[in-house]
Each structure stands twice: as structure tokens, then as C-alpha cells.
């Protein structure tokens, strides 16, 4: 199937040095959609983006933009803008001329290009910096200018390579907000962004694509990828804290440290996963699995509890106001429907 609007990558093989880095990558990103490519360092995320932009090569496969095959087109003829991790603003011209650049190289008269660039700078709240040199801008401002410049090119596809990696946490939020504000839905560009920050990707993207071992291991909406990883490798990569050994019997009952529940499938060893928030800890009342508190973890979003349940080390959320001590016994409450089963044995099984 060919999508009429946006990016379509079919059977793409991306070389990595003299070896094949990525194999048989198939990906579609519609106009106005944001897809995040996740993967460990060195898996080939940047090589893939560069190949899509025409700055690197595909061993085989096709790249289509708005239905047009651009596999052999030069970078300037693809309708794809590629933004580096650290925005490469042209240091010898002003901020305004940076943003006007894509228009001027397309033949738009200088005055019209500068007027359009001024409007874009207004959208990123940097109109007052129009005549400044890029070297005088802060990291966040440089990213916003680079975004405005990218949009001045009116791309069909926007590729963002680790757009927040070079920023400290405070500036990350500023630039992330700018990305969300600027990138329109509907007819806006198809956005493919590379990151290794799962939370950031889940908060920004409509879909996540996890690249592992040279292939797209799983693609789907964030809730699906994070709650229902297709493999142990994906579960580990997205950082699921609760991975338990389990076994399914012939009656399709899966038994793990948290109890037994029905889940159809072939009998044999499995891995049971649960997101951190799916497990709750309360004071001992009975009628629930018993766990032992191993420690508390203070995080930005609240405190979590490390517990041992039948030899499994799990992470759970304490009930509001619960006083916990290391070594104390607690009830571990879980909704069986929030447990996910991965059809492969745990390591060592």
C-alpha cells in the first residue's frame, strides 16, 4: 500500500560501515503524524534518518514522499528537512537570514523571504532576536530558530535527530513545547524523530517504533508499546521494571509471582510484565499477594517501592499516606488485566 501523504519507507536496508546496519525497515508516517524511533546507541537510527534525507545511502529499498519515489533524488529535491542533534545555524549570517535561507534558495525574493522569516520567528517568540548572530543565542533559542528555519522550507517530512539530547532538562521542556506548538496536525509535515528517551518519545509521538538488532522490533501507539511489549528485548529497552518468570499450563492459566490468571496461548514458560503503576502496595489486610519492602525510590513523578515477591524484584506504587519500612510485609494489589504476557521464556529458563 502506498500512502498519498507523508513518508513511506519500504524494505529499506541501511549500510553501517561495510556491514548492513538495518534490515528490511518498513515505516509509514502520515502528514501531521509524529513517529519516534527508539533504539540503543549504535543501532543505526541516525544512519536511517540520513538515508531517508538523501545524505546517506540505502543498500536497497525505496523512500516515497507524498507518494513520489525520491530514493534517487538529491537531498534538496526530496521535500525532507533533516535537523541535527545540535542545530547547525549558519554562523556568518543573522538569525533572520538563517530562517530566510530555505526561501531564498528556492528563488523567493529577498524582501518576501525576510517577511516570511519574520513571521516564523514570531511563532517561536524570537522576533526580537532577528538581527542577532546565532552565536549570541542560548541553546534553547538556537533550537527554536532551527525549527523555524526547517518550517520555512515547508517540508513534507521533518526528520529530527535527537532534538533534545544536547539540552539540559529545563531547556528540553522549552524546546519540546516549541516542537508541539509549531508542528501542526493535518497538513503539517510528517515528523520522524530519533531519541533514546522513552518518556520523551511517549509524550511527544503518536507512535513509537523500537529498533533492536537491526530491525523494527515493534511499532505502535505509546500505550501499546509500553504496556504490551512484543518481546523481552523490547520490554527491557523501554525500561519496564516488572519482568516476572511465568508458566502457562494446558488450561491457559498463567502462574507467576503475583498469582494466576487466564490468558490464552500455548503452554510453556513465559514472561509476565506489568508497568510500574499497575502494581499497588497497601498495608497488610489479607486477600492479596504478600511482598517484602526492599527500599523506596524517589522519582520526579512520586515515590515508588521496591518489593520482593516470591523471589521476584518488582516496582510498585504505595497507597497515599502509607508509611513504609524496609523489611516490612505489605499487600501487593494488581489488576490481572493489566498484566501482559510475552511468549518467550525468561533468561535462564
Amino acid at each position: 500500500m502506498t500512502i498519498r501523504n507523508g513518508l513511506e519507507l519500504s524494505h529499506a536496508y541501511v549500510p553501517f560501515g561495510e556491514k548492513t546496519g538495518l534490515e528490511d525497515v518498513n515505516l509509514q508516517v502520515a502528514r501531521g503524524e509524529r513517529v519516534a524511533l527508539l533504539g540503543p546507541s549504535g543501532v543505526g537510527k541516525t544512519s536511517l534518518l540520513r538515508a531517508i534525507a538523501g545524505l546517506g545511502k540505502l543498500s536497497s529499498g525505496t523512500v516515497r514522499v507524498d507518494g513520489r519515489d525520491v530514493t534517487a533524488a538529491p537531498p534538496e529535491g526530496r521535500g525532507i528537512v533533516y535537523m541535527h542533534q545540535s542545530p547547525s545555524l549558519f554562523p556568518h549570517v543573522s538569525v533572520l537570514d538563517n530562517v530566510a535561507f530555505p526561501l531564498e534558495v528556492r528563488g523567493v525574493p529577498r524582501s518576501a523571504a525576510r517577511a516570511a522569516a519574520t513571521e516564523l520567528l514570531e511563532r517561536v517568540r524570537l522576533r526580537s532576536a532577528a538581527l542577532r548572530q546565532p552565536s549570541t543565542l542560548s541553546g534553547g533559542q538556537r533550537h527554536r530558530v532551527a525549527l523555524a528555519r526547517a518550517l520555512a522550507a515547508d517540508p513534507a517530512v521533518l526528520l529530527l535527530d535527537e532534538p533534545f539530547a544536547s539540552l539540559d532538562p529545563g531547556l528540553r521542556a522549552e524546546v519540546r513545547d516549541a516542537v508541539v506548538d509549531l508542528l501542526e496536525r493535518g497538513d503539517g509535515p510528517a515528523v520522524l524523530l530519533v531519541t533514546h528517551d522513552v518518556d520523551e518519545a511517549a509524550g511527544l509521538a503518536d507512535r513509537l517504533a523500537v529498533l533492536l538488532q537491526a530491525r523494527i522490533a515493534q511499532i505502535g501507539v505509546p500505550a501499546e508499546v509500553l504496556a504490551c511489549p512484543r518481546s523481552l528485548a523490547v520490554a527491557r529497552f523501554v525500561g519496564l521494571p516488572n519482568l516476572m518468570r511465568g508458566v502457562r499450563d494446558r488450561r491457559a492459566v498463567v502462574t507467576c509471582a503475583l498469582g494466576a490468571f487466564d490468558r490464552p496461548g500455548p503452554p510453556g514458560p513465559v514472561v509476565v510484565t506489568a508497568r510500574g503503576g499497575a502494581l499497588r502496595v497497601r498495608a497488610r489486610q489479607g486477600g492479596a499477594t504478600i511482598g517484602t519492602v526492599r527500599g523506596l525510590v524517589d522519582r520526579v513523578h512520586g515515590t515508588a517501592v521496591r518489593i520482593d515477591v516470591d523471589g521476584e524484584r518488582l516496582l510498585a506504587v504505595p497507597e497515599l499516606g502509607l508509611q513504609l519500612e524496609v523489611g516490612a510485609s505489605v499487600d501487593v494489589v494488581v489488576d490481572p488485566t493489566s498484566l501482559h504476557v510475552i511468549e518467550e521464556p525468561a533468561d535462564g529458563d
Binding site: 537531498p75 534538496e76 535561507f101 534558495v105 528555519r149 520555512a152
Partner: peptide, 18 residues
């Protein structure tokens, strides 16, 4: 020399000559 300047310029629509 920051070669990424050339890369970004190309994807922003500039020909090799530009």
C-alpha cells in the same frame, strides 16, 4: 569545519552550488 552545515543546507533546499 562543521560539515553538518552543508548537510542541513542541502535538505533545506540548497543545491551543491548554492
Amino acid at each position: 569545519f562543521d560539515l553538518s552545515l552543508e548537510d542541513e543546507a542541502r535538505t533545506l533546499g540548497a543545491s551543491p552550488w548554492q
